[in-house]
Nucleic acid binder design. Structure first.
Lengths: 194, 194
DNA sequence: TTTGAGTGCAAGTGCTTGCTTGCATATAAA
DNA sequence: TTTATATGCAAGCAAGCACTTGCACTCAAA
C-alpha cells in the first residue's frame, strides 16, 4: 500500500484483497482493520457499514466497465483480434478479480454484484457482433457464421477458463492465458475465417 | 421428501437444498433441522458435525462420477454426439447442482469439494480425446484438429454456460440447454468435421 | 412387560461478528 | 495558543451460530 494512500483507499484495498482470499464472510471488519492498518472503529467512520465498502468497490468497477469498449481492440484480422481480446479480457478480470469471485461466491446475496458483473459479457458481446458484422462484409468472416452464436461461444470460452482460474485455482483445469490465446482461441477463430 | 425416507437422507436432502439456495454459511443447523423435519440435536446424533454432512454428500457425488463414462454416449457422428453430450453434462450438473455451486462459492474453504468437482471435467476430457481419436481414424473428424484443444474448448463452452446458469441465474446470460446444444454446440461441432 | 433404539424438547455454552461508545491523542490550520 | 479534524483504543452490546446436555417420550422387538 502506497505511503500516501488515503484511509478510504487503504480500507478499500484491504477489503478487496481479503474478499479475494477469504470470501465475504471471512472478510471481517477486524481483518479489514488489521490489513488496512487502521482501527476497526475507523472503518465505521468512513463507511456506513461493511456492505457500504462493497458498494464503493462496485462503483469503481462500474466506472471501469463503462469505458470498456476502448480496451477491446479489433482491427479486422479475426485470429489476431480474438487472441488479443482474450488477453485483454483476462487482464480486465485480473484487475477486478475480487469482484469477479464475489459474483460467483455471493451473487445470490448481492443482486447488485450480478448487475455489475454481467455488464462485461454484455458489452463484449455487443462489440463482437458489431465487429463481426463488419468482418463478414470485408470477407474476413465466413458469411454462414451465426454471429450471435460465435460471439456467445467466444465469451463462454473465456469466461469458463477464467472461472477455472479463479474458482478452482489449484485444480490445474484452466489453460494459462498465453497458451489459451495461442491455441484454444486461435483454433476457434480460424474456424470462423472464410 | 418420500414418506419412508431415513432420517439420514432427510437431513442430507435438506442440507443439499439449503446449500443451493442459501450457501454454506446460510445453511444453519437450525434451518437444516426445520427443512428435514427433525430436531436440531438429531442432526448431531447422525453426523459428527455440519461438515460431516457435506462429507457424506460428496461421497454420493463421487459414487456417481466414478461411473460417469457410461453416461456420455458417443457413437461416431460428431455433431449429434457433442449435442447429446452437452445435454448429458447439463443433466449431470443439475443432479448435483448444490455441490457444483458449493465448489464455486466455497472452493477455497473446502479443498475436498474441488477435488471432487474437478473429476467431471477430467473424466469428460479423457473420454472426448479417446473418442475423437477414433473419429479421426474413421474420417469423421478433420485430421488437423488438435484433439486436446477441441476437447478443452468443448468443456469450457459447457462449463461456462453452466456457471452462467447457476451462479447468475437471473442475469439472462446462459443459453437454455436446448438452444445451447442445437446452436452453440452444433456450430462448434460442425467446424470439427472433416 | 421390559428393554433398547431413536427422537423431540428446551435450555444452555462458548465463541464470533458487526457495530457502538466515550475518552484520549496527534496534527494541521487559523 | 486554540480549534477542528482525524484517528486510536478499549470496552462493550446484541445477535447469531455450532454444538452439548439431560430429561422425556414413542415404538418395535424380545
Amino acid at each position: 500500500m502506497a505511503a500516501t494512500q488515503s484511509t478510504d483507499d487503504k480500507i478499500l484495498t484491504a477489503f478487496s484483497e481479503l474478499l479475494f482470499s477469504n470470501g465475504y464472510e471471512g472478510t471481517t471488519t477486524k481483518r479489514i482493520a488489521e490489513q488496512a492498518g487502521v482501527n476497526e472503529s475507523t472503518i465505521f467512520r468512513h463507511f456506513q457499514d461493511k456492505h457500504g465498502i462493497l458498494t464503493k468497490l462496485i462503483e469503481g468497477y462500474m466506472a471501469d466497465i463503462n469505458n470498456i469498449s476502448d480496451s477491446f481492440e479489433i482491427k479486422g484480422d479475426i485470429v489476431q483480434d480474438l487472441m488479443r481480446v482474450a488477453k485483454t479480457y483476462d487482464r480486465v478480470i485480473e484487475n477486478h478479480k475480487s469482484l469477479f469471485l464475489l459474483g460467483l461466491r455471493n451473487g445470490y446475496q448481492f443482486p447488485e454484484i450480478i448487475s455489475a458483473i454481467k455488464q462485461l459479457p454484455i458489452h463484449l458481446k455487443a462489440i463482437l457482433i458489431e465487429k463481426f458484422t463488419g468482418m463478414i462484409e470485408t470477407g474476413e468472416l465466413d458469411k454462414d457464421v451465426d454471429l450471435e452464436v460465435a460471439a456467445t461461444n467466444f465469451i463462454l470460452l473465456n469466461f469458463g477458463n477464467t472461472v477455472f482460474k479463479y474458482a478452482y485455482p489449484k485444480a490445474g483445469l484452466n489453460v494459462p492465458i498465453s497458451k489459451f490465446a495461442k491455441e484454444n482461441i486461435k483454433e476457434f477463430a480460424e474456424k470462423l475465417k472464410s
